[in-house]
Design a protein around this nucleic acid. Structure first.
Lengths: 199, 199
DNA sequence: TTGCAAAAACTAATTCGATTAGTTAAAATT
DNA sequence: AATTTTAACTAATCGAATTAGTTTTTGCAA
C-alpha cells in the first residue's frame, strides 16, 4: 500500500477477505487489519462502526459471491446436470474462500435485510434449478433444504479437516451428490409418499 | 452453589455446558463462568489452563455425548431403521445441546488424541450400522462421509436459523434422510458405477 | 488433637484488543 | 483562498484473559 492510495470500504473489505481466507475468520481483528492497511486501529472507525459491522459486511459479501459462483455454474444447464454444476461451484467457492464462507455462516446480525435478501437469492436460484423436475412447491423447498444441508455440511467438515481417512474427498463428494440426485428421482416418482412423510 | 460444595473439573464442565447451551458458545468466558461458580476468575486457573483448554474439554465431552446418543439409538436396530434412528438421535442431541455441539465442531486443537479418538468412535459406529448393507469398505466410508455431511449440515443450518420459510423442519429432515437412504439402496444395486465415480 | 502440606481460593497487577474522545492534517469544494 | 469534509492521528478507557504472589481452607498423619 503506497501512502497516497486512499482507503475506502471496498479496499478494507478486500484486505479483510484476504486476511480471513489466509488466516481464518478468528484471526480477523481491528489490529491486524489496520496493520495490513498501514493505518492505526482507530482510523478504521472512520470507515466502519467496529469489528461486528465488518464481519456483517464480510458475511454479505460472502453470500453474494457464493451466489455469483452458483449462478455462473447454472447458466445453460438444467436438471441433474445443473444440480451437479451448482454443487461443484459451491465447493469450489468454499475452497477458494474458506474464511469468507465461514464469515457468511457466522454473522453478528441474522436480521440484516441485505443479508437475508442475498441468502434468499440462493434459495431462489436452487428453486429455479429444481423447476425442471415439476415437483410440488412444498416438496421442492424440502429438497432445497436438503441440498443446502449437504453442501454446507460437506464443505464445513472438509474445512475443519474432519475427513480423517485417506480417501479421495472429491469422490466422496461426487457420490454424495449423485446419491442425492437419485433421491430426487425417487421423490419425483413417488411424490405422495414423500408429501406424507414425517418423523 | 453453596459455599462448601467443592469445585472440581466435572462441576466446571457441567456449568460451562449449561452456559453454552443456554447462551451460545461465544458467550463462554472465564468471567461469566467464574460468576456462575461463585468464585473469582483467577481461581479457575487452579483447575484448568485457560479458556482454550476449557473449550477443548467441552469439545471432547460433546463428541462423547453425541456418540452416546447415537449408540443408544442404534442398539437393537439395523439397516434403514438404524440409519433413521441414529440420525434422529443426532438431531436430538444438537437440539438439546446446541452450545456443546457447537463446541464439538470448533475446538482449539484438532490434533488432540482424545478428541480424535472420540470422533473416530462415531465413524466406527456408523460403519457398523452400514455393515448390514454389505458394501465395499471404500464405498461404506464415502457413505459415512455423506451421512455425516447431511447431519452436520442440516443441524448447523437449523441452529443458525437458516431455514427461513415457514415449512415443517422435521418433515424436511425426514425427507432428507429417506432420500439419502434411497441413495444408499441405489448404491448397493449398482456399486461399480459408484466405485468409478469422480468429479 | 495438632500441625503441616496440598489444594484452592483470593487480591493485585499486567497485557492485549476494541473502542471512544478529542485533535490535526489533507483534500475537495466553493 | 477560505472553508468544509474526510480521514488520519494520539491519548485514554474499558473489558477480558492471564500471571504473580499471598492467604485460607482442608485433609491427613504424627
Amino acid at each position: 500500500m503506497s501512502r497516497r492510495m486512499k482507503i475506502d470500504l471496498s479496499i478494507i473489505l478486500q484486505k479483510a477477505t484476504e486476511l480471513v481466507d489466509e488466516q481464518g475468520l478468528d484471526q480477523l481483528s481491528i489490529g491486524v487489519l489496520a496493520e495490513k492497511l498501514e493505518i492505526r486501529p482507530p482510523s478504521l472507525y472512520n470507515h466502519l462502526d467496529g469489528l461486528n459491522e465488518l464481519k456483517q459486511k464480510l458475511a454479505i459479501q460472502g453470500v453474494k459471491k457464493l451466489n455469483e459462483y452458483m449462478l455462473q455454474a447454472a447458466v445453460g444447464r438444467s436438471g441433474d446436470d445443473a444440480i451437479r454444476a451448482i454443487s461443484k461451484a459451491y465447493i469450489q467457492f468454499v475452497r477458494e474462500h474458506p474464511g469468507l464462507y465461514d464469515a457468511s455462516t457466522r454473522f453478528p446480525d441474522a436480521n440484516d435485510q441485505e443479508l437475508k435478501q442475498a441468502q434468499e437469492s440462493i434459495v431462489q436460484l436452487v428453486l429455479q434449478v429444481l423447476d425442471g423436475y415439476k415437483l410440488q412447491e412444498e416438496i421442492a423447498i424440502h429438497i432445497v433444504r436438503g441440498l443446502r444441508s449437504i453442501l454446507h455440511g460437506f464443505t464445513s467438515i472438509e474445512q475443519m479437516g474432519g475427513f480423517g481417512m485417506p480417501l479421495d474427498i472429491n469422490k466422496s463428494f461426487a457420490i454424495l451428490i449423485n446419491t442425492f440426485i437419485e433421491g430426487i428421482h425417487a421423490v419425483t416418482i413417488n411424490e405422495d409418499k414423500y408429501m406424507q412423510m414425517h418423523d
